[in-house]
Amino acid sequence: MTSVAPLRLAPGHRNVGRELAETWQARDLLYTFADRDLRLRYRQTALGVVWVVLQPLIAAGIFTFVFGTVAHMSSEGKPYMLFTFAALTGWNLFSGILTRTAGCLVGNAHLVSRIFFPRLILPLSVMPAAMVDFIVSLGMFAALLMIYHVAPTLALLTLPFWMLLLAAGAFGTGLVAASLMVQYRDVQFVLPVATQLVLYASPVAYAASRVPEKWHTLYFLNPLVAAIEGLRWSLLGTEAPSIGSVAYSSAVAIVAVIFGVIVFRRMERGFADVI
């Protein structure tokens, strides 16, 4: 039978190697959670898939009307609808992962307080559903390209990079929010307001180039600026973000993930006692 070292449970005792192995062994659970979330979403709402398509379409329509038609902002020569829709695909990926990751512990409180499994599986399992939404949205974008007779450029090849950048940033931030939310429930009310603010502080409804020069330093502190501009460039061939801003954005994303995982792991021992 097994002659491996026993599992030791003691205050503050961590065995990173063992935990990594356990997380890997629990990969089926990740799949099951993702499967559950997708099934439930599409089963409970008759509009399931339609909603995923409709939501960014409506949002893009509103932005197009307000910023394009009313305010006559520049969309760098592209149809305004395409211009905002491209950015919204990225924005929705970011906010979708952030919101779901943030709520994953409180939303599964009954599991966390009743059974052990590698806790990191919960936030990780929100990824597949977010990716499905992203792909549906990309399909929609492809249809829009055809409708507007716009051809994608070679920049499209960089799409996975922007996707990863946005997902990593959202995941890291989400992990911190999830850990905080266990202790402080008002985080769940603050978060939607904060994301809404960040949406307007990011070049989704407008081009970053429209931001007045004197605000640039401050504006580019938002790491999402480069990521969203980059995604739009890759989808639509608009103006590319500068290398410097992309490097900054990537660094922030990496730090966010590392910091998020550390916070999450530090807090996870106490989740069941507080939740």
């Binding site: 097994t2 449970l9 003691a10 503050g12 599991l111």
Partner: peptide, 30 residues
């Protein structure tokens, strides 16, 4: 392993399965 001891230690030799309630994670809609 749902929660951590405040003091002392526990050693477990082998894979642990815990049934603290029936149907943990069952979802009514599934």
């Amino acid at each position: 392993r749902i929660t951590e001891p405040t003091e002392g230690e526990i050693l477990m030799y082998g894979r642990v399965g815990a049934l603290l309630e029936v149907g943990t994670g069952f979802h009514a809609e599934l």
